[in-house]
């Protein structure tokens, strides 16, 4: 539709954009295999896995593997909750209900209110809860509260909540996109054939939307695994990997940090690949008019 010259220059622009996107990351992937005498920049002085070995021995005082494990576990919990809660809410939003428009606007706001504000709010909330528990414990004379209680803040309380305010809006928006394109005649057919609400959902709706749920899961896991700003003030005493990484940018001055970067990027790519393969498999199963589906209906 555009002239030849214009199309060509757009293609060049797009290619440059891709180089801009990937170039820097590729350079640190390469530099993480820097020789033992090499530094933070090119040229490569040999090729080795020296910095990965140094990473496995640990980076200074920071327990990098602990942080890594926490990030993975938190990511998985956020992923499961994001899929289940977004799916339920997505189903609910197909009808109007009492607080539907308020909930919708609150969800959108949660996406665009600056992350530092949410982090501060969650931290405040848990601080006030902590204070209340301490006062309550003192007044009631509950011994363990007086002696041992420190904080309710933590990875799976405030940290989890802060990250969900980031992943749930994405999950809900995907569900909106899914149900906008969803043909309700499948449900009606199932109902006409005598299926109850649960059976209709499980055998007619779920198989059709399953590939999109994989998409929600991918968003949930990777957004959590790399999340930084919202959890920064609300994570409690033990940091996740991105938070440790941010600290390392000012203290580590050798390619160990690149090795760590390569490793966490590899985890992200592994997650993306797994989800894409699952997506493709489910997609193929739904598109093929399989005999098993016909028999269950």
């Amino acid at each position: 539709m555009f002239g030849r010259g214009f199309t060509l220059s757009l293609s060049v622009f797009f290619t440059l954009f891709i180089v801009f996107l990937y170039g820097p990351t590729v350079s640190i992937l390469v530099l993480s295999f820097q020789g033992p005498n090499g530094g933070l920049t090119f040229p490569m002085r040999g090729f080795s896995t020296f910095w990965f070995e140094s990473l496995f021995d640990g980076v200074g005082v920071i327990d990098i593997w602990g942080a890594f494990g926490r990030s993975i576990r938190l990511g998985l919990v956020v992923m499961v909750l994001t899929v289940i809660l977004s799916l339920m809410a997505g189903l609910a939003f197909r009808k109007r209900f009492l607080i539907s428009s308020f909930l919708f606007y609150a969800t959108i706001s949660s996406l665009i209110v600056p992350s530092i504000v949410i982090s501060l709010g969650v931290a405040l909330e848990f601080r006030i809860i902590d204070d209340a528990i301490k006062v309550f414990g003192d007044n009631m004379g509950i011994q363990w509260v007086v002696d041992d209680f420190r904080t309710t803040m933590g990875l799976f309380s405030s940290g989890l909540g802060a990250q969900l305010t980031w992943t749930l809006p994405f999950g809900l928006l995907i569900m909106f996109a899914v149900f906008n394109r969803f043909d309700p005649s499948y449900e009606e057919a199932a109902r006409d054939l005598g299926a109850g609400p649960w059976q209709t959902f499980r055998e007619a709706v779920l198989p059709i939307i399953a590939p999109s749920l994989i998409g929600v899961a991918l968003f949930g896991f990777t957004l959590s695994y790399d999340e930084l700003a919202r959890s920064s003030q609300a994570i409690g005493g033990l940091n996740t990997l991105p938070l440790e990484l941010r600290g390392l940018t000012t203290t580590v001055t050798d390619p160990t940090i690149y090795a760590l970067g390569t490793l966490t990027t590899a985890v992200s790519f592994l997650a993306i690949s797994i989800f894409l393969i699952l997506f493709a498999l489910l997609r193929r199963r739904t598109n093929k008019p399989s005999s098993s589906k016909r028999s269950t209906l």
């Binding site: 990351t25 920049t41 990777t222 940018t249 970067g261 966490t264 990027t265």
Partner: peptide
């Protein structure tokens, strides 16, 4: 795809350049 990887890593990847 880059959107699904770590922001901090994408920041420090400018250092060698």
């Amino acid at each position: 795809i880059p959107f699904w990887t770590s922001n901090v890593i994408r920041m420090i990847s400018w250092i060698p350049l």
